[in-house]
Design a protein around this nucleic acid. Structure first.
Lengths: 211, 211
RNA sequence: GGACACCCGUUGUA
DNA sequence: TACAACGGGTGTCC
């Protein structure tokens, strides 16, 4: 199970939103929410909490966030906070909730730099920002997404080879392989980069038509 | 005579810098320096010491610092330390040097809160930070940098656009831009990704022929 | 326990 | 560039 989370806040403090995308194989689920007056860090926390609380049974999950606050908090700082009686620690309510939610699962916490091109991070960021804007607008109208249940098109990841072409500004490109897993695609690209220094290998987010 | 002092330390302990601006009427003089491995408080002390030692004759000075450590140390705590034989007092070397430098003048010690808008404090802060960065870089190159031997081929970073082609495994590629800075190239690719969801944008390490 | 300073990092806004 | 929030730490003294 893979989970991407993000929080957003229009002004800090200010109206905020959080969102998570949960993926198991090719199946995806989105959860999101927000509050009219909160902080960026509380939204990042809520995204992770809500994602883990949404799981119906104990799971092995890879949770990806761009918040070092959340990741280091849960995996490094929290034991110290508890030992020191939570003195001077902000957002204790959410930290304890996250700790409890995480304890029911086998979580591998993973960090990605925000706004650095990670496809899923960008997607979940847009969801979180949309939620924050909804809160700012007064919490009313959801973008009615009644539709879009069974997508005929699935997200995939193409490993692309770019080699020098004839002219200075030309290149030859070929799609080496298309993989469902972003991680495996990245591995494949890395392997090819090491094997073939004469070309550049990239992973391109793409889609494949479902059968 | 008016003097503003400040110290900086990149990491604490770490490479540090100190600076002072001495003003008499409309005439100004700046002194600064640094050390590759020191502490914030030693730099604050060095700023005051060096400023007072730079005066050629006994003067009436108003010395402004944001360091309570320096100001209370010299004007309140130091007599007690001496009476108690400097037991458990750090930086005794610098304290005694400051005491001696200050004794040759008539100093009015004045505190300003750091980073609170005081113009001279901001100026001297920037000088101190610049010194600390110089120390971090290796203490060598002062602002004056001679020339670079002009390599004929320079590393660069191509922003490549990959768009869907005719067949399932084809694509059209074009080099959108070539930049010297990897970071700027990544930014450009990210910007284009956001603007143009119909294609994928990559940064490809490349070279350009120098003129 | 308090104060001042010096950082490191993330997010967010203009 | 500048501002803001949030977190973790060290250097030092009382």
């Amino acid at each position: 199970m893979e989970i991407w989370t993000d929080g957003a806040c229009l002004g800090n403090p200010g109206p905020g939103g959080w969102a998570a995308i949960l993926r198991l194989g090719s199946r995806e689920r989105e959860v999101s929410g927000g509050e009219p007056d909160t902080t960026n860090n509380r939204m990042e926390l809520m995204a992770a909490i809500s994602a883990l609380e949404a799981l119906t049974r104990p799971s092995k999950v890879r949770l990806v966030s761009d918040s070092e606050y959340v990741l280091k908090g849960i995996s490094e700082w929290l034991p110290g906070w508890r030992a020191r009686g939570w003195k001077k620690v902000k957002n204790r309510d959410l930290w304890e909730r996250l700790d409890e939610a995480a304890a029911r699962h086998d979580v591998a916490w993973e960090w990605v730099r925000g706004h650095s091109g990670d496809e899923m991070n960008e997607r979940v960021d847009k969801l979180a920002v949309a939620e924050a804007e909804r809160q700012k607008a007064g919490g009313a109208a959801r973008p009615s997404r009644a539709e879009a249940p069974s997508p005929r098109v699935e997200a995939a990841h193409a490993v692309v080879r770019v080699a020098p072409g004839e002219g200075d500004l030309e290149a030859r490109v070929s799609v080496v392989r298309v993989l469902r897993s972003a991680a495996r695609a990245a591995d494949e690209a890395a392997r090819l980069r090491a094997e073939d220094p004469g070309a550049a290998y990239f992973v391109s987010p793409t889609e494949v038509a479902g059968g």
